[in-house]
Design a protein around this nucleic acid. Sequence first.
DNA 1: TATTGTTATACTCTATAACTATA
DNA 2: TATAGTTATAGAGTATAACAATA
Lengths: 141, 141
Amino acid sequence: MTEPLLPDLANDLRLACQRIARRVRFEGTQQVAPHQFSVLVRVSKTPLTPTALAERERVSTPSMTRTVTGLVDAGLVSREPHPDDRRQVLVSITPAGQRVVTETLAERDSWMMQHLQGLDADDLALLRRAADLLLEVAAHE
Amino acid sequence: MTEPLLPDLANDLRLACQRIARRVRFEGTQQVAPHQFSVLVRVSKTPLTPTALAERERVSTPSMTRTVTGLVDAGLVSREPHPDDRRQVLVSITPAGQRVVTETLAERDSWMMQHLQGLDADDLALLRRAADLLLEVAAHE
DNA sequence: TATTGTTATACTCTATAACTATA
DNA sequence: TATAGTTATAGAGTATAACAATA
């Protein structure tokens, strides 16, 4: 890669990632709103407090209270008392919530898979390596 | 690429694109709100009517009226009469709006470039090809 | 009569400030 | 006194329904 082409690569990679992210987001069934789904994915890995969720999602704690309340009303998460500190609350996913996460992620992967079908083995191998590189780039810093 | 690994590739590629898109979106200066910027980019290429913009952005025409009004108030776009049909309005970008588009896209590319700096020539060459493939994938259908 | 765009009204998500319970 | 979470209130974006101007 010669140096003058780096700006073009940066631009094209950014555009490609943004467009694919946009397509993936729109094609899904949208069982819950985007901001709710993002929280659902986080608590599907480990229970978190509203404050921790608010920080990670970059919203205020009152907004997170509202989002969590919506998810509780929908039966997708539950509020549990914190074992050590009675001021705190732990938001945990329910079986129904786990089901929504699993189904939605499967739908998104399905879209991606359909759009990879037409590629030949060489291209797929190249994208395999590219995916690992991009995941590193995204995780960096 | 053997067939059983395709689901993993689809999952990793989707995650990588979504995470990079998210990083790019958050790192920017945010001169205007996301929905406004999206409209600004569209009219920076060619003037469009509010209805055409609403369809492309997948929002209602009243919402687009509101968004366009905000951009007009900020001096970033202008409403022009349609030459053929006096019911219609053409939303055009102003020099100030064009400046915002140029600066914001440059910032986003800058983030992407910084995060490509650490890669070697082989990886960059691979990503060059991957970017073209992903742009095709995103454009498909 | 159909179409384009705006205005009227209501709902949702967001934020800041104030409040309650606990540390 | 400080912290975690919720509630109160207001601002901005969205939608559907109703309206004005033009085709």
